[in-house]
Design a protein around this nucleic acid. Structure first.
Lengths: 167, 167
DNA sequence: ACCATTTATTTGCGCTTGCAACTATTTATA
DNA sequence: TATAAATAGTTGCAAGCGCAAATAAATGGT
């Protein structure tokens, strides 16, 4: 494999597309839904979870954030009344997180915006066939470089909702 | 387009692959070359530029960082003796940045590491044909969502070197 | 029952970032 | 040529992050 083959070019473009798409989506969400991309990710992940609840560490792992980072992120969202954090009765060490009613409303609003933005920056520029192909390739890569958890979280989470972020 | 079509799935996988690949490359570079992914990006961009020199604002734009962020990043690299920052004689407002000899050495080391890492997390999992196809798709997206500058910077920059980052 | 160990989460600290304000230098205008 | 406006870059500030240490709660061995 030479250093300048098509795969290297694809890699560079991959990075650039990600950087630009991320910015546009984040800006769009903040402007139209008052929720950042990262916060949206948290809200959606919690809401998609079994029983619409997750413990802190599960949430951190799912969105690929450190535990301490998630601790503070959740604190901010609780502050903004979008999330509840309740201590687990069976095990006083664990805290479970759940969307508040306001949080559900905010998520729905952001959900719409997000769906539109994904189309704008990504999905609308692909055919169905290309989408399938891309998905196959990315899944293959993920099988190689991801942990068991990432793979499971992803395949479990495919729903009708716009999808989870991960930084 | 339904919300759960293949393009949405591809988008989610795109984000996850990026997040994991970014981490692995950054970790690998720091461990094996003492240069972060972001610093590598700066060094390579400067070195690839016309005359191996760029002004601060050009550099900031090329790697998609704010001017203030770049100001401090360059300050750190100058501190580490990897970069020189010299005031332009024709226009006292502009500062031009160039790699030091140490910087060139560091870049070469990191360049090798980076090439290996790209293979590990991305390129080796693609066929040549798939690489070409991915590149085509990403380029098409970039033509829609990128500015003129991003498009030019990219197409100009395809060389034998491992490629530029962009957050 | 008691104390050491392990586990879940939060805090202290230092680092990096972006925005807005600031400084320095050049260009345009009268 | 004096002065206003524009431009390039750097700082003050507040925010978010990760690591490592601290806290709090559960578990295991005796």
């Amino acid at each position: 494999m030479t250093k300048s083959d098509s795969r290297q070019v694809a890699w560079r473009l991959f990075l650039t597309v990600h950087a630009l798409a991320y910015r546009k989506i984040d800006d769009g969400l903040v402007a139209q839904s008052c929720v950042s991309f990262d916060d949206y990710d948290v809200l959606l992940t919690v809401h998609e979870a079994d029983g619409q609840t997750l413990r802190m560490s599960e949430l951190a792992e799912a969105v690929l954030l450190s535990n301490s980072g998630m601790s503070r992120r959740v604190a901010r969202l609780v502050e903004r009344q979008l999330l509840h954090r309740e201590q687990c009765p069976q095990d006083g060490r664990v805290f479970k997180v759940r969307l508040s009613d306001t949080g559900v409303t905010a998520l729905n609003t952001a959900w719409n915006t997000y769906g539109r933005l994904i189309g704008d920056v990504f999905a609308d520029h692909l055919s169905e066939t290309e989408g399938t192909m891309l998905g196959g390739i990315f899944q293959r890569i993920l099988d190689q470089i991801g942990t068991e958890k990432h793979r499971n979280l992803l395949s479990a989470g495919v729903t009708d909702a716009p999808q989870r972020v991960q930084s």
